[in-house]
Structure formats: structure tokens, C-alpha cells
Design a protein around this nucleic acid. Structure first.
Lengths: 199, 199
DNA sequence: TATTAACTTTACACCGTGTCAATTGACAGC
DNA sequence: GCTGTCAATTGACACGGTGTAAAGTTAATA
């Protein structure tokens, strides 16, 4: 049975995830993860080459468990650009709080580590596709404002819904998550949808 | 003469600043700063209690040299809310590239260190005041959209012009700084100014 | 019974922060 | 000239984190 091996690996990943969420991705050492997972510190290195690789594996694991892309795909059949936009923010806005700790940890290491950056970006590729889809849908419907090119609009959209912005509005400004979702929908509509093009 | 002492302190601060800009605030150790400043590592601890205190002092020093608040005050006499908004983004958008490294370093340590957070916030207080001023000016002129309360509008404004968003749009999306300033002005106008209230 | 694989224990190397003590060198006032 | 003082240097050390290496344990497998 390799179920023992798989169990240990899973235990480590869930322990990492749990600690990251508890500590908001800050100051989580390998020793603490090992302790939380009920294994020795060295066991971590049997399963993962480095701390960064463990984090990359964790974000992938979370992605697999939480199935962001699946959730997004449910709404990709939505009729219009505005409906797509609302659906996207509903899904993403409810997703962020569940992955905030590990996401924050990833974002922090992205600056120094290339592997982290690509791993995080690959996990977020579905969301990014969604942004493109929304902008092109609005464009096709003639509802997209003409202030920016489609590429620029995607960049702005992508930036606005970043985890950092969620953190700033909720954790630092004290918004509730419902408030965040409501206001973000409005904000994106005001930004990208022509005034006379009501839903 | 205490000019020797002051010189050393200044050397350390400028060396820290320089290194932070060169390395975008990543992986700058006390040894490297000491080397760059032409002093021993221990000399740093004669002038600053800790690494964090050095960084706080550096951001204050940069603030003093660059005089963001002075630059902002020049425009606080601007007539209307829209003019204020444009002036604010001009000043801030040209300021960010000059302080990006140290700002990034500060933001990274803010998550763990309370002193960093308050120091950074105090340096940014002038900018924050500017946000409040712009929103209230728009409100007084009857040009503010009614989607949000004034407080919420300030939070959104503040979030949109964050250093993280600047980084994402310029460094990650490849925008030029001129592009950033132009688009950010437009974005904020679309977000907060009533459609019929043209400048 | 012997082997293999997962895991543990212990030890160590390396680096970064922060502390401490002894020392050098220059500049002050008497 | 002597002495005190202050900035700075040198060298050592504690501590904690990451990562490596080697020897030992345990349990399932062949």
C-alpha cells in the first residue's frame, strides 16, 4: 500500500494550508508545519524538495480541493457580459477568504521566486480567462467603454480583483465580504460598461 | 562636531535607499547595507536599533528628501474636484517610481511589524488626506456618484492608487508610467465622477 | 526470514539578525 | 601632555530558519 505515503503527504499539505490560513501566510516555519502535521521536520523534505516547493504543492492542492476553475466554468454559459461579470465576482469574492492565507504567502514569495510566480499564475489562469471572456463579451455586445483597448481593460480588471485589493478593502478598511462583492461588482460595471447599456 | 556622526547616519540611509531601489526591496541584508555605506555592520546598530527601525528611518528620510507632501500641497489650491484628481495622480504617479524599492520593502514588513505599518501610513497621510479632499470636493460640487458613501469612495480611491496596483500594471503588465498615469486618471474619473459632470 | 520503503533521530553547514566586550583613533578641555 | 569621551571597528557569540547527510527504527512485502 502506498496509502500511508499518500496520507502523510496529504497530512502535510492540509497542515500547511491550515497554518497558512491561521497565520495569514506569515511566519510559518517548516518546524511548525511538521509539528502540525504530526511528522518530523525531515519528513517534509522526503516529500518536498524545499519550502517553496511545499508551498507550490499546497496552493495546487487547495486549488484541486476547492475547484475554483470548476466553479467558474459553471457560469461561463451565462448569457451576457454583465451577467458574466456578476457571476465572476460572486465566485471569486467568495473564494478569496478561503484561500487568503496561502495566497498571501505565495504572493510574498513570488517577488523572489520564479517558480512561485508561475505556480500561482497557473492556478489563477482560469480566473484570468474569465476576465478576458468578460471583456470580449462586453466588446461583442457593444457595451464596452472605448477608453481602453481590450488588453488594457483586462489588465485593469485583473488588477482590481487582486487579492491585495481584497485585503486592503476588507482587512484594512473593515469591509465585510458581502460589502466587497457588492461594491466590486458596481465598481467594475462603472468602469467597463457603457452608461446606457443597462443589464 | 557632530557632523561626522550625522554624515555616517546619512550615508547609511542613502545606502539603504539605493540598495532598496536597485533590488526592488528584496533580499537586502544588513551586511550589504553596511558594505554599501562603507561602515561596519555593527555601526548600523549604533544608529538604529533594528533592521526594521532602519527601514522606517529610511522611508522617513526619503519622504523628507522627496517632499511628497510639499508636492501635493502645491495642488491643494486647485479649483475643482476633477482638477484635484488629475493633479493628485500626476504627483503620485511620478512619485511611485522614485520610491518603489523602499516602499515595497516597507509593505512586505507591514504584514508582520506594526511599527512599519504605522510609519508607512504616516508617510502616506498626506496622500490619504488628498483622497479625502478630492472625494469631498466632488461631493460638494454634486459631481460624486451616489453608488458609495464618501468613506467607501475614499477606501476605493485609496486602494486603486496603491503601490501594489502600480506594480501590477507597470512591472507585470508592462505599462509605461505615462500609460499608468493617463489610464488611472480616466479610471478614477469614470469611477467617481457623474457622467454628465464634465470638467 | 530478508528486504525494502517510509519515517525518525541526531548532527551539522550556512546565513541572517541581534548582542556583547574589548579596542582603536580622534577630538575635547584642563 | 594627560585624560575623558564618543564614534566606530573587530571578533565572538546566541538564536532561529533552511537545507543536507547519515544511521537507526518500524512495518509491510516477497
Amino acid at each position: 500500500m502506498s496509502s500511508i505515503k499518500k496520507d502523510t503527504r496529504k497530512n502535510i499539505l492540509t497542515a500547511t494550508w491550515l497554518l497558512m490560513e491561521q497565520r495569514a501566510g506569515q511566519g510559518v516555519s517548516m518546524s511548525q508545519i511538521a509539528k502540525a502535521a504530526g511528522v518530523s521536520r525531515q519528513a517534509l523534505y522526503l516529500h518536498f524538495d524545499s519550502r517553496i516547493e511545499l508551498m507550490v504543492a499546497t496552493i495546487r492542492y487547495v486549488d484541486e480541493v476547492k475547484e475554483l476553475n470548476q466553479r467558474l466554468k459553471l457560469f461561463q454559459q451565462a448569457s451576457g457580459g454583465i451577467e458574466l461579470l456578476d457571476a465572476c465576482i460572486d465566485v471569486w469574492g467568495n473564494y478569496i477568504p478561503e484561500i487568503y492565507g496561502i495566497a498571501k504567502a505565495m504572493i510574498n514569495t513570488m517577488d523572489t521566486d520564479e517558480a512561485s510566480a508561475t505556480a500561482w499564475n497557473s492556478c489563477m489562469s482560469g480566473l484570468r480567462d474569465m476576465c478576458v471572456q468578460i471583456i470580449t463579451a462586453l466588446q461583442d455586445e457593444g457595451k464596452l467603454v472605448d477608453n481602453w483597448s481590450a488588453d488594457e481593460a483586462v489588465a485593469i480588471f485583473w488588477t482590481m480583483i487582486s487579492v491585495n485589493n481584497w485585503q486592503q478593502l476588507t482587512i484594512e478598511c473593515g469591509w465585510s465580504n458581502a460589502q466587497y462583492i457588492r461594491h466590486m461588482k458596481l465598481l467594475l460595471r462603472r468602469t467597463f460598461v457603457l452608461p446606457d447599456a443597462t443589464a
